[in-house]
C-alpha cells in the first residue's frame, strides 16, 4: 500500500495551520523550516515513498494547498 501516493504542494498558498500534519495517518507531513511568500512555514512531505494517497491532508486543508494523486490499484 505504501508509496502509492503523490502530493503536489502549492507551498506559497499554505498558511501553516498544521491541520494536514495532524491528521496525516502516516505522520509523514512536516512543517517546512523556510518561510513561504506569505510568511508562514508551509507543509512539506518528508518521506515521499511513505504516502499512500489517502487524501486526508487535502480533505482537512482549508486552502486547497495539496493536490493528491494515487497509483492505480491502490
Amino acid at each position: 500500500m505504501a508509496g502509492k501516493g503523490k502530493l503536489t504542494i502549492a507551498r506559497d498558498r499554505c498558511k501553516g495551520c498544521g491541520l494536514c500534519i495532524h491528521f496525516c495517518p502516516k505522520g509523514i507531513l512536516k512543517e517546512f523550516l523556510e518561510l513561504n511568500r506569505l510568511g508562514y512555514r508551509p507543509v512539506s512531505l518528508e518521506e515521499e515513498g511513505e504516502c499512500t494517497g489517502c487524501g486526508i491532508c487535502a480533505l482537512m486543508c482549508p486552502d486547497m494547498v495539496i493536490q493528491v494523486e494515487r497509483g492505480e490499484g491502490a
Binding site: 498544521g18 486543508c61 482549508p62
Partner: peptide, 29 residues
Amino acid sequence: MKVIAKRPESLTQQAFHYCPGCTHGIIHR
C-alpha cells in the same frame, strides 16, 4: 496515477483571505 483531490471547478484560483486554519475554506471546497 489518478487525481483524487484537487481544486474544484466551481472555485476560482483566488486564494482565500480566511485566517490560517479557519474551516470556512473546507466548507467552501
